[in-house]
Amino acid sequence: MIKNYQKLAIVGEVGSGKTQLIRTISDISPFETDVQSSVDIGKEFTTVGIDYGRLMLDSDMALGLYGLPGQKRYAFLWDMVNQGLWGLLILVKHGTGFNAEMFESILGHFRSPQSYTPILVGISHCEQATPQSLDAMISAIEHSLCSHAIVAPIIPIDPRDIESSLILLELFDSLNSASQEATPDESV
């Protein structure tokens, strides 16, 4: 029986790698909710529901992985996991332009002065990125974070890669440990 269960929400635009990331770090096959997409993103299916995966850490301890679409019209899905999150990973795709409106609607929804959820921004599809293009994208993301008074790590990730996934988990662990000693709503 699982007594210690934490939740990680993975939110991002279509094709950003949410499903793949859950597959990579989950020890069970995620229950896939792929259905025919009305958006042509170059692949046949895209996620319009919640992807779910689970990483068992001990016999009574697990991390639940929830992949959620980034479009604001699916905010009702965000609310289903928004309570007591261990972390929020926002996945953005390199090379297609940064969707600041979507990004900021996610930030505004998940982060409030009353709740302190550790946030991490992962940039996927960086294989063809140059340092300059990556820097430009990070600048745009930092600007959005700054407008919400959020300081969060922004790192390139490969959702297919186990090591890259472990780095994410270690970062969230570090942010959680630090947040236990902090007073988030007093920070300026």
Binding site: Y116, P131, L134, D135, I138, E142, L145, C146, V151, A152, P153, I154, I155, P156, I167, E170, L171, S174, L175, S177, A178, S179, E181, A182, T183, P184, E186, S187
Partner: peptide, 26 residues
């Protein structure tokens, strides 16, 4: 911390990560 260091600036070692995590909460 005003912003986390970028991957193009420094390698996020364990020490840097822990320090930045602490300084990003206040």
């Amino acid at each position: 911390l005003k912003a986390w260091p970028r991957s193009t600036q420094v390698e996020l070692t364990r020490d840097i990560t822990r320090l930045c995590s602490a300084l990003s909460t206040g």
